[in-house]
Amino acid sequence: MPVDKACLVREHGIEHDAHAGAWHRQVSLLGEESIEYMRRTAKMELKFGDFAENLTTEGIELKRLPIGTRLRIGDCAVIEITQIGKECHADCAIKQKIHDCIMPREGIFARVLIGGMIYPGDVIRSL
Rank of each mutant, 00 (worst) to 15 (best):
Y37A: 13
M38G: 00
E53S: 10
E33R: 00
Q83A: 11
E58C: 12
I124C: 14
M44V: 04
D75H: 05
I84W: 03
V9D: 05
L113A: 11
R10A: 09
H24N: 12
Y119V: 03
I124F: 07
L113I: 15
A18M: 10
G107T: 03
K47N: 09
I60S: 04
G21E: 08
M1K: 11
A90H: 10
R39E: 07
K43T: 01
L30R: 04
P66K: 14
G49W: 06
G49L: 03
M117T: 09
Y37E: 13
T57P: 12
I35S: 06
P2D: 06
G116C: 06
I81P: 13
E80A: 07
R40F: 02
T56M: 10
G59A: 13
H16I: 00
D75F: 01
G121I: 07
T56E: 07
V123S: 14
A52I: 01
D4L: 04
M38H: 00
K95V: 05
I118V: 15
V9P: 04
C101Y: 05
I98V: 15
T82V: 09
R125K: 15
K47T: 10
Q96W: 00
P66R: 10
A42L: 07
G116I: 07
R39V: 11
A20Y: 05
E32P: 00
H12Y: 15
Q96H: 06
L46V: 05
A77E: 09
I79T: 12
K63N: 05
F51R: 08
M117A: 03
A6M: 14
S126W: 04
R25S: 02
P66I: 01
G74H: 07
K86H: 04
D50M: 13
Q96L: 15
G74S: 12
E106C: 06
L62C: 07
R72K: 15
E53T: 07
V112D: 06
I81W: 09
E61Y: 08
L65V: 05
I35P: 02
L46D: 09
G21P: 06
D17I: 00
R70F: 09
C7K: 13
A90N: 08
L30F: 05
K5F: 10
R40Y: 03
L8Y: 12
D91A: 08
E106F: 05
Q96Y: 01
P120Y: 12
P104L: 10
G121A: 11
G115M: 09
L55H: 03
G13R: 01
A18T: 07
R10Q: 11
V3N: 04
A18Q: 12
G68A: 08
E80H: 08
R72I: 13
E36Q: 14
K5E: 00
E80F: 08
R105W: 00
I124S: 13
K86G: 05
R70T: 14
D50S: 02
D17S: 13
I108R: 02
E61A: 14
T56L: 06
A110F: 06
S28N: 02
G59R: 11
F51C: 02
I94E: 12
T82E: 14
D100I: 00
E106V: 01
E87S: 11
R39A: 00
F48D: 12
R105C: 01
L29M: 15
L30D: 01
G13I: 01
M117K: 14
